[in-house]
Structure formats: C-alpha cells, structure tokens
C-alpha cells in the first residue's frame, strides 16, 4: 500500500455538491476527503453507505464506492457488505433522524455486534431534508413546524445510547474543527470493530447556531471539555473531579490540578464513559468532546470468518456431492 500516494483531489467526485450554503456538511466532507489519503487504502476498497437525509448525500461526493440507500437502513446494508467482504473499509454516513429515529434498531445492533463499520453520525438536532421538524436529539420544548407549541419528547444522548448498545469506540467532534475531527477519524480507523462518531453539525436553515456556544471564540474555551487519553479532563475554566461515586464539574480555580480526573478511554467499565456522556445536557454549556471509549473487543466479521475457517480446518472444504447424498438414502434399480 505504500506506493499509493493519493490526495484530497483523488477522493473528490465529479458531482456538484448540493447542500445549502453554510451547511456544516461542507466542512465535514472536506475533512473526510483530506483524511482519506492518509488511510493508505486504495479508493476501490473504500465504501461509503448512507441512509436518507441531508447528510446521506455524502457518498455522491466521494470518489470511492458508495451507496445512498434508504432511510435508517445503512448500518444493515453495510453490515452485510462488511461481513462478507472483510477486505473493504466500510463507512456509514447518517444523521440524527436516520440513525436514531427510523434506523435506531440497526444502529444499536451494529454497535452491539461490533461490525467493522465506521459510523459518522451528523447531529444537527433537526430534520433538514423534510424542512424543519424536531428530531430525536432536539431539546425538549423545541418549536418547529410539527411542534408549534413545543416538542414534548426527551431527547436521546447519542453517546449514552451508543455506550448502552455496547459500542467499543464512541467519540464526539464538531463539524468546524477539522483538526479535532481528523484526530478522531484517525483513531477510529485503527479501531477494530464499530466506531461511532457523533459530529455536531450546524444546519444554517432550520436550526442555525445550535452549536455556537461550542464554536464561538468567547465561549468555546469554557464549554468544551477535552477528552484525551492520559490527560486530565478539563476546559479552560472547568475540570472534572470524583465526588460521591460520581463525576462533578468544578471550577479549575477551586481545585488542584492533581485532583482532576485523568481520562482513561480504555477503561473496560462502560459506566465510566457513560458518566462522562451525562455531563452535557441539551444546554451545551459543558460538553465533552473527543474519544469517550475505545476498548478492544473481537469484531463481528472477523469472528464470522474465523468460525468458517475453523470448520473448514476441522472438516475440510464442503463437497456438494457428499452434501446432496447425505442422510438416509436408498437405491432404486
């Protein structure tokens, strides 16, 4: 693979990109196109599979194999592909409606099985393609066309959901932070098994500014709690300490640095990552970003294929004639 020297341009298809001006999807696309050459994988061995929604147009703009499938089902289709073709690198592109509403079942089962899929969940907390209804990640009380007096639903926390689904790699990043997103993509790509990356993504038309707190120079320093394995968990103003068996957010000025929690992404106990995921609510005043959990667990496709290899090693390759002639047979002369 070392002779492959591809550039961002090699991963850019000839299709005109048709997202709304200012959409967060543009910067995610650009980051992914810039990152892909780094993988060292030939273009023909990379497949992007998406569902339905604004983000799901993504595969059309990448010069790899790609499928824009149906609403919510990308993880199911991608599972069949990844299991049967372990030689491929398979990515799933999905949104908060696609992955968490109509396709919730497929997402949790892909994660639980640990299928070799890198799932990029673009979370803009709104339905964009259908022109502005609340989504399963919209904050309660959201005023939209379908909820003129405010939405009643409690939102999903995608990180908590993924951890509850036994995900082995769970991370969060932000559309506009290319450097951070690239770091996460890099870590996800070497992870064996499923990786879920929630990407906060701005919808300039139906939910503009939803993540401004995390992007504005004046507020982001205090709002973003950086998760880096082996480093203390803190923002510019706050840090995390342990108190009463749980985590507590405190002002940095009130504690010594040595009291802050040092992040352990490889902690086998999912309760640790889950507790981290609960620090942020809909308000986004303190939001952990980075890798919540990155643990090793056998990946599904490798187990499927090693079961087959084991049977063949023990019994030999199947012979059709013997199969058809197996069981109780009799001759008619």
């Amino acid at each position: 693979m070392s002779d492959i020297s591809l550039t961002k341009k090699d991963f850019t298809s000839d299709q005109e990109v048709k997202w709304c001006p200012g959409c967060g999807d543009y910067s995610i696309l650009s980051t992914v196109q810039s990152f892909l050459p780094e993988l060292g994988i030939p273009r023909e061995n990379i497949v992007f599979i998406s569902g339905i929604g604004c983000s799901s147009r993504f595969p059309y703009y990448l010069e790899t194999f790609g499928m824009h499938s149906i609403h919510g089902r990308a993880p199911a289709i991608a599972s069949g592909l990844a299991i049967s073709r372990p030689d491929l690198a398979v990515f799933v592109i999905t949104g908060d409606g696609d992955a968490l509403s109509i396709g919730g079942n497929h997402l949790i089962h892909a994660l639980r099985r640990n299928v070799e899929l890198k799932i990029l969940l673009f979370n803009n907390r709104i339905y964009g393609l259908t022109k502005g209804q609340y989504s399963p990640t919209s904050e309660t009380g959201k005023i939209t066309k379908s909820t003129p007096t405010g939405s009643l639903d409690t939102p999903f926390n995608p990180i908590s959901l993924a951890l509850g689904a036994e995900a082995s790699f769970v991370a969060r990043s932000i559309d506009s932070d290319r450097k951070h997103l690239t770091e996460i993509l890099r870590a996800a790509s070497v992870h064996k098994g499923s990786a879920l990356i929630e990407i906060y993504q701005n919808c300039p038309i139906f939910n503009d500014g939803a993540f401004d707190l995390l992007k504005d120079g004046g507020t982001k320093g205090a709002a973003l709690l950086q998760l880096r394995h082996g480093e203390v968990i803190k923002s510019d103003s706050h840090g995390l300490i342990r108190e009463d068996g749980s985590f507590k957010l405190v002002e940095l000025t009130s504690v010594a640095e040595s009291e802050l929690i040092v992040h352990d992404a490889h902690n086998p106990d999912p309760a640790y990552a889950f507790a981290l995921s609960r620090i942020s609510g809909s308000a986004l005043d303190h939001v952990p970003v980075g890798i919540f959990r990155d643990v090793e667990r056998p990946s599904y496709g490798s187990m499927v294929n090693s079961q087959i290899a084991e049977v063949i090693a023990n019994q030999g390759v199947g012979d059709l004639d013997s199969l058809l002639n197996s069981g109780d047979t009799w001759e008619v002369n």
């Binding site: 993880p75 289709i77 497929h106």
Partner: peptide
C-alpha cells in the same frame, strides 16, 4: 446472519450482494 429484524435481514443480504 440472524439479523435484528426483517429489514436488516434483507438489507444485509443486499449489502452482501453489492459486494459480490
């Protein structure tokens, strides 16, 4: 592949078919 539901069952089959 014993899928999580009927949709994933046919979806995975279609994904496998896409892969040859």
């Amino acid at each position: 592949f014993q899928a999580e539901d009927e949709i994933a069952a046919v979806g995975s089959a279609l994904g496998a078919s896409y892969g040859g």
